[in-house]
Amino acid sequence: MSVTTNSPPSGPNWQRFTPAQRLARYAVYLVAVMALVWSVRNVSIIPEFLYDAHNQMADLLTRMWPPDLSYYPTTVHGALIETLHIATLGTILSIVMAVPIGLMAARNIVPFRVVNEFAKLILVASRSVNSLVWALLFVAIFGPGALAGTIAIAFRSIGFVGKLFAEAVEEASPGPVEALTAAGASWPALLLKGYWPQVQPAFWSIALFRWDINVRESAVLGLVGAGGIGLVLDTAMNFFQWTRVATILLAIFTVVVLAEILVTQIRKRLI
């Protein structure tokens, strides 16, 4: 109906899709259903567990109530601040590393395909590995603690920040850069006065967006020993202190929501 796509605007051909496209779609539906059936039949779920799941869940939630708020100032607060430090420092570190790689990946900055592709490979590698895996790797290298967490967050974010930054640079209008080239500007001056003013809004937006994501991600790192509130959560769960768990979850929820509000507010001001 209203969903107009790239089909020709008029003419006798009323069909939205070619027969081949239709066939491809039906094939996709079929494969999707088959994949689902295969998954359901093969996944190792004990049916009794499934039927009992809601009871177990309700049971856990009752044991969490009421949250042990007295636990917050003694332990949770410090861990929460550590989590924020990990997220912030990790984001800063990732930007420091991602900006040069992003510039290398941008075709209008470095006109060598080999360099572009190499930089893109680094960015893809960074994104393909989950932050938890990065955390496991860096815990193995630097030992447990916030250092491993911060570097894990940084490495995980390089791909995201670098890719979006490179795209923003490639979208920059070439006109001003051409004018500054004509004025005899050196390449650092071109970056500083030709490109930077153009990519600046995108840059801040990317940095804030990634920081918001990293606040969420850094809350998990402690589960594998990389510092932050995840560690406290893990301990509380291992000792079945459910009211404390509730406090921790509440703290994470609050911080994540506050971070999101903060980011939206700053972005509104920047743009």
Binding site: S44, I45, I46, F49, L50, A53, Q56, M57, L60, M237
Partner: peptide
């Protein structure tokens, strides 16, 4: 923690 280890 609620329903035990496993894919479920």
């Amino acid at each position: 923690k609620a329903i035990g280890f496993g894919p479920l």
